[in-house]
Design a protein around this nucleic acid. Structure first.
Lengths: 155, 155
DNA sequence: GGATTGTTGAGACGCTGTCTCATTCGTGAT
DNA sequence: ATCACGAATGAGACAGCGTCTCAACAATCC
């Protein structure tokens, strides 16, 4: 029974070993409805009785970020979150601050803005980051309370 | 002897008390050459024999961020940095990853991008953030070592 | 000057992310 | 299938960040 996720594939292709903790994490990540934090993965792993050390979660997330399979977000709260990235192309995200859902955005005009800013300021720009925060269509429709991650609100 | 910085003025106008620690911090912040972290302020305060509690630094930075006198950056390293903001208008920053210098950028086209992304995804976008990282003109010119704050990320 | 109330200092606290090092286990070769 | 090698893991220590509490203090208004 091989439930091979894109993450496992990416790890394999990059020459990383397909260990049990990595497979488990790949499944956990695939189940995340939106963005997630390292701590949430640790909690989910515990809940499913998967024994994965905290250090392994961080290490794996680092690897995945390096592969572009996952991207790190800086949430307005100051936390570090992660999102799975489908394509390997450069893109950015809109994040729902209510349910945590994220969607990808990609606008060719951004490239122009970055280029012109570099020209105007004289910087050599190596990297840029655009993040939008708001409320997703679903949460807008149902003006209710957060719909997921009830376990986070428990003592 | 009243050396009144813009930060002190902003605090005053917003109805906050002008205490000694806040005045000291205003001076420390005004002296920062580029972006800075809470820990750096604490260190600078110690170096100048100013007694300011760590908690006060965090609290004051929170207040200043609320006033828009300062903005929080999420550096690629994962650290949280701050920059002073001159105008009250919405803008973004280019950050030099070598010396820590920052400059403001403001492009009207970004507003269009955000608006269109909102339209396309159906989100109500409340907030957005654009950060550019690279090397400033001065550091480009002198391809030398970092001129200040060697603990900042080196190439 | 005195009262009021926002602010501070000090330290405890919980959390994040890193590191070490002995042990385990994928993997490719045999 | 077995083996040997080196990558990866687990467990826990560790350092740093940011928050909180609470008694003591002091800026402001009267």
């Amino acid at each position: 029974m091989e439930t091979s996720t894109p993450i496992v594939t990416a790890l394999d292709r990059a020459g990383y070993r397909l260990t049990a903790p990595r497979r488990s994490l790949a499944l956990l990540i695939a189940d995340q409805p939106g963005h997630f934090t390292a701590a949430e993965l640790v909690a989910d792993a515990r809940a499913r009785r998967l024994r994965i050390a905290r250090a392994t979660v961080f290490r794996t997330l680092d690897v995945l970020e390096g592969l572009g399979a996952v991207e790190r977000l800086d949430l307005p709260s100051g936390e570090h979150g992660y999102v799975v990235c489908e394509g390997a192309h450069h893109h950015h995200h809109v994040v729902c601050s209510r349910c945590g859902r994220t969607d990808e955005i990609d606008d060719p005009r951004l490239r122009l803005i970055v280029r012109d800013a570099a020209r105007r300021t004289g910087y050599r720009v190596d990297e840029h980051r655009l993040e939008l925060f708001g409320v997703c269509p679903a949460c807008l429709a149902s003006q209710t309370r957060p719909s997921r991650r009830q376990h986070l609100t428990q003592p």
